[in-house]
Amino acid sequence: MSEAIRKNFISSSLAKVNNLEVSERDLDWAMVQRVQNGDVSVYDNLVKKYRNPLFSMIYNMIGNSEDASDITQEVFIKAFQSIKQFQGKSSFFTWLYRIGTNTSINFIKKSKRQRFVSYESIDETLIGSEIIEFLTSKNRTEKRILIAEIQEKLNDALQKLSPKHRIVVILHEVEGMNHKDIAEIVKTSEGTVRSRLHYAKKELQIYLKEYIQ
């Protein structure tokens, strides 16, 4: 493939990706406008679209599914009540996550006791190949025990981080967001996000040193 063709291919691919992002945001904005104009049933579509990632973020912040479920519902209700104030300057997704982040951090500050309760069900397709390789080397019983143990250690380690460091790790490493989006959600600079992420990972490596290199 010549250099010119290669460059053209890359630029067209990037354009496609960008268009996809824009259309996703526009799609959300169109739905939000319909809700603002009184077609409230459209809000269900937004809930179904974002309930899973939002719940995942809140669950990893809070530590147990019952509280996370309550808070996720609270976030959707808050967003619904304030939807008339949403002007489309940011994406609906970012706005929703910002409400979710603030509500979670407020909950953590208010609640005296934190307890992490992990799910027993694990979607193995989402686990990294290294972990799968490591786990498949164990028998069924050993595998289950090991997963439970790692989960517990991971949860403990996350709970030792401050909320502002925890949220950055969760959004970047678990939810796979980029620094720019995280900066927008937590209302800080990209530099601060990088710095917090670096510090948080360093802390986690210390807490989880028995499992990693």
Partner: peptide
Amino acid sequence: LEDLLKLKKAEQ
């Protein structure tokens, strides 16, 4: 560490 954190995402 990144691989371990993926376990969190796998919790469904």
